[in-house]
Simulated assay, not measured.
Amino acid sequence: MSEISSEDPFESPEAADLARARGGDGAAFTRLVAPLRRELHAHCYRMLGSVHDADDALQEALLRAWRGFERFQGRGSLRSWLYTVATRTCLDAAQARGRRAMPVDLGPSSDRAVLDAAPLGEVAWLGPYPDAELPTGGGPAARYEQREAVELAFVAALQHLPGNQRAALLLFDVLGFSAAEIAGIMDTSTTSVNSALARARRVLAEKVPARSQQQTLRKIGDARMREVVAAYSSALERGDAEALVALLTADVTWSMPPLASWYRGLAAVMDFAVEVPLTRCPSWRTRAVAVNGQAAVACWVGAGPEELHTGFSVTVLTLREDRICEIVSFLGAEQFERFGLPTSVK
């Protein structure tokens, strides 16, 4: 006689997996979490400012969630419960590691090119985030919001907030949780959440441009954005300073973490560009990439046009209208693997 299944034939697959996961079925837990992994990872990146820290935090959060899954009673959504675990994990990590910095946070800009500067290894630097790892569902509006929420200016500004303010603002303004839900997630009061939100918004109002990159890119259109990226790449590869100047705003900045030196204004930026990338780097190869929801270029440097070119930087461009107002070159070949890029090209 065949064994009669005890499972309810009308039970949803998710409900069945919830029951299995509570019973210790790891595969069922993995299936439940899979649709939420990307958005949880992006949340960890916004909280911590580093894709590698986000990897570690998400892994730790899911381990905590699995070990304590019997405590999830299903009174709220699984998504809310996982965000609770992930947010608390990130708060622990932020307290232990401190905030991520950009060169502009460390001191004034340089008027002239700083040659042979050594990387500051003791600084925890803000890092880039691959658009390819952002959530893909929810339609164009949701994807627009996801890209806007990882723009460099926004993530850099978040690093100036204490952990509780950072978490409250992200959970409310980016993820749409209510103040009462956030109070539960952070084990505090609704009054404290509202106070943290107000303080966080005041800081961000001072540090984040009024117009996001998504708004700028929508206004100028994809075709014009591609033209700007191609013109930047071409000017770099040809060593054409005049062509590069034509793409920049008068108040342009250029920074290169993990180097502390950074430059503001056309004169300083061009002095650096002529002295270093256009003179000291004999040959360039470039490729347009998608980073932090912004226009970006991967750059390889070689000793000559026929020589092997090695990974140099992932450079994120911030546009104002259709000119470049900020260049951030994240130096190091270690960036390339995460972006699915070769570490060397011919």
Rank of each mutant, 00 (worst) to 15 (best):
S189T: 15
D105T: 11
T286E: 03
W284R: 03
H309W: 01
F177C: 06
A28Q: 10
R143I: 03
R226A: 14
A333V: 11
R99I: 14
V208S: 08
E181C: 07
R99V: 15
Y83L: 07
F177I: 02
G23Q: 14
F272I: 00
F330M: 09
T190F: 00
R143C: 03
R323C: 10
R75K: 06
F10H: 12
A196N: 13
D173E: 14
R202Q: 12
T89P: 02
E70M: 05
R320G: 10
P277T: 05
V301S: 00
L331G: 02
D251Q: 14
E227T: 15
V229H: 01
S12E: 07
E3F: 13
L58S: 02
G332I: 14
Q73D: 15
L169R: 12
R46V: 06
A157T: 13
E133H: 12
E275D: 14
M102S: 13
R31E: 02
I324C: 04
S329Q: 05
R79P: 02
I4W: 08
N194Y: 11
S234T: 15
V316E: 04
V85F: 02
G302C: 07
P140D: 07
S109L: 00
A235N: 10
V155F: 00
L317S: 04
G26A: 09
D56R: 06
D116T: 07
P128I: 05
S261F: 01
G304A: 15
